[in-house]
């Protein structure tokens, strides 16, 4: 363990912790925009600067390893003034259209602007302007709202292993986008959306559905596959309007494209809600007993007439391991064939 002093308070942390980790573990808040606890430290937004005795200039607490005997000051009029300048600079190149922004209410930048009481822009000047892009149905990128914190770049590379986007251009024109500014063509897992601290990255399906305040969050398990990721359903008027993942779930806040964006089937009018049996050429509602009996009768008839190996079973990735085990048991023991497979192999 390493012992250091932060704002006059003795703090002990594991070796390898950053000064930011140490401060937060002691309940001392430090503002950050580019830092994400599950991604590598970046040191780009400069909001988490602190003073450390013996170092002549402020340093970013997210990138500075905590060291034995360190004496850290996280808040002082000087540090607050510097953080304020940094925020003013970010906001000077931001659309500031919170009234219509999907990020409003969950936007960290908005939160800090409020906390620091920023109303005027002392640095009026050019603002980056971009054409809307991306025909994909999942991810909306409004790059004018991007603060280039790099979280999306890192999650795509470090967590997803896709590296679909990166920093391009230099200076004020720096822009995060796919190579050669092509259309986004990735897995559309939306991890970038999850970690974006502003409204730059949002889900296309979310647009103008509800404000955060009007949303009820329901924690459940994703039904798409046997992995069983924990999800947070954002529900309004008994309709799912978006899906995120809780940071403290076992899947650590990460989801795939299906879990994050494939929720519309829940409300689909085409969705099957009861068994249907085709009678006289028309699908008609039936009871579960009736439906299962029909399947059993037909399988028995085929098995008797043509032999068990004329039957094959294909199970679903949406089933759990236990369900898949039972399914192969049914095929092998009850029907008597080894013709059993699984859609995830396709």
């Amino acid at each position: 363990m390493i012992s250091l002093t932060i704002d006059g308070k003795p703090v002990s942390v594991q070796e390898g912790s950053s000064v930011l980790d140490a401060a937060r573990s002691a309940g001392i808040p430090i503002p950050t925009l580019c830092h994400h606890p599950k991604l590598s430290a970046f040191g780009g937004c400069r909001l988490c600067i602190v003073r450390i005795e013996g170092i002549p200039r402020p340093v970013t607490s997210c990138t500075t390893p905590a060291a034995e005997g360190m004496v850290v000051t996280t808040a002082s009029p000087e540090i607050t003034a510097l953080r304020k300048t940094v925020l003013e600079l970010i906001l000077s190149d931001h659309p500031n259209d919170c009234m219509v922004c999907e990020g409003a209410g969950t936007c960290t930048l908005q939160e800090y602007a409020y906390a620091f009481g920023l109303r005027d822009n002392p640095y009026p000047g050019e603002r980056r302007q971009y054409e809307a892009c991306d025909a994909n149905p999942f991810i909306e990128r409004d790059m004018e709202k991007c603060i280039a914190c790099g979280r999306c770049v890192k999650v795509c590379d470090e967590i997803q292993g896709v590296a679909a986007i990166n920093f391009t251009y230099r200076g004020f024109k720096t822009k995060i986008c796919p190579a050669f500014e092509r259309e986004l063509d990735c897995e559309f897992c939306g991890q970038c959306v999850q970690v974006c601290p502003t409204g730059a990255l949002t889900g296309k399906q979310w647009a103008r559905t509800a404000r955060t305040l009007d949303v009820q969050k329901v924690r459940t398990v994703c039904g798409y596959c046997g992995v069983g990721c924990e999800v947070l359903l954002h529900v309004q008027n008994n309709r799912i309007i978006r899906v995120s993942a809780p940071d403290d779930g076992w899947n650590e806040g990460w989801l795939c494209v299906k879990g994050r964006f494939g929720y519309r089937f829940v409300d689909s009018p085409d969705r099957l809600t009861e068994p249907l049996i085709r009678k006289d050429g028309v699908l008609q509602p039936a009871s579960w007993d009736e439906a299962l009996q029909l399947v059993a009768d037909k399988l028995t008839a085929i098995k008797t007439q043509h032999g068990p190996d004329t039957i094959g079973g294909l199970s679903s990735a949406r089933c759990t391991t236990e369900e898949n085990y039972l399914f192969q048991k049914l095929m092998r023991a009850a029907i008597g064939t080894n013709n059993v497979d699984h859609c995830a192999r396709l």
Partner: peptide, 8 residues
Amino acid sequence: ESCGKCVP
């Protein structure tokens, strides 16, 4: 020539 990484 700024790399664009940090805000200031």
